[in-house]
Simulated assay, not measured.
Amino acid sequence: DRILVKMHATATAELTCDRTLQPYDEALEGQYNVLFGPPSMVGQEGDEFEEVRPLDASDREIDLTDMVRDTLLLAIPQRRIAPGAEDEPIEREFGGTDDADEDDSAPVDPRWSALEELEDDE
C-alpha cells in the first residue's frame, strides 16, 4: 500500500549568461524523495522522504512529471554565469564621449527642431 520513490534527475539546460548575455549549456542535477501511501498518511513527514502523496489501491500508475520538472527547476542557479565569463571585463561607460566631434547646431532628431526655434526666440 506504499511506494517510496527516490529520484535522481539530471539534465542539460541551455541558459543565458547574466554577465555576457551569451547562451551556454549547464548540467543540472537534483534529487527528491517522495512517499506514495494511503490517504491517511498524507501530511506526515519522515526521515527518508520529503512529503507523502496519496496512493489509492486502484491506482496503476504514478505520475512523476511534475516532481521531476520541479526538482530540475530548483537546480537552476539564480546567478547564471557562463564558464570563463568572470574573466571578461564589464563595460561601465555608455554613450558618446566628450572628445567626439559633434555639430551642436544640427539637432539629433528632426522632431526637436520646433523646440530649437523656441530656444532661438529667447
Rank of each mutant, 00 (worst) to 15 (best):
R19D: 09
R19S: 03
R19E: 09
T20C: 12
L21G: 09
Q22F: 00
Q22P: 00
Q22C: 00
Y24K: 04
E26Y: 06
E26I: 02
E26N: 11
A27T: 09
A27I: 07
A27P: 01
A27W: 00
L28G: 00
E29N: 07
E29I: 01
E29T: 05
G30Y: 04
G30N: 10
G30K: 08
G30D: 13
G30V: 04
G30I: 06
Y32A: 00
Y32W: 10
Y32C: 02
N33K: 07
N33R: 06
N33P: 00
V34M: 03
L35F: 05
L35W: 05
L35H: 03
F36M: 06
G37C: 03
P38I: 00
P39Q: 10
P39S: 12
P39V: 08
P39R: 04
S40I: 08
S40G: 01
S40M: 02
S40D: 15
M41K: 10
M41W: 12
V42A: 05
V42I: 06
G43M: 03
G43K: 12
G43C: 08
G43W: 03
Q44H: 13
Q44F: 11
Q44T: 10
E45Q: 11
E45I: 02
E45V: 03
G46F: 11
D47T: 13
D47Y: 10
E48C: 07
E48D: 15
E48K: 10
F49I: 05
F49C: 10
E51I: 06
E51V: 01
V52L: 08
V52G: 08
V52Y: 04
R53F: 01
R53I: 00
P54N: 07
P54D: 03
L55K: 09
L55F: 04
L55N: 04
L55I: 00
D56R: 12
D56C: 02
D56E: 14
A57S: 03
A57L: 07
A57G: 06
S58M: 10
S58F: 11
S58D: 15
D59M: 10
D59W: 08
D59A: 15
R60H: 12
E61I: 00
E61C: 01
E61M: 05
I62R: 05
I62A: 04
D63G: 01
D63Y: 08
T65F: 03
D66A: 15
M67T: 04
V68I: 15
V68Q: 06
T71W: 14
T71Y: 12
T71D: 11
L72V: 04
L72H: 05
L73E: 14
L73T: 04
L74Q: 14
L74K: 14
A75V: 10
A75D: 14
I76T: 11
I76Y: 05
I76E: 11
I76S: 11
P77M: 13
P77G: 14
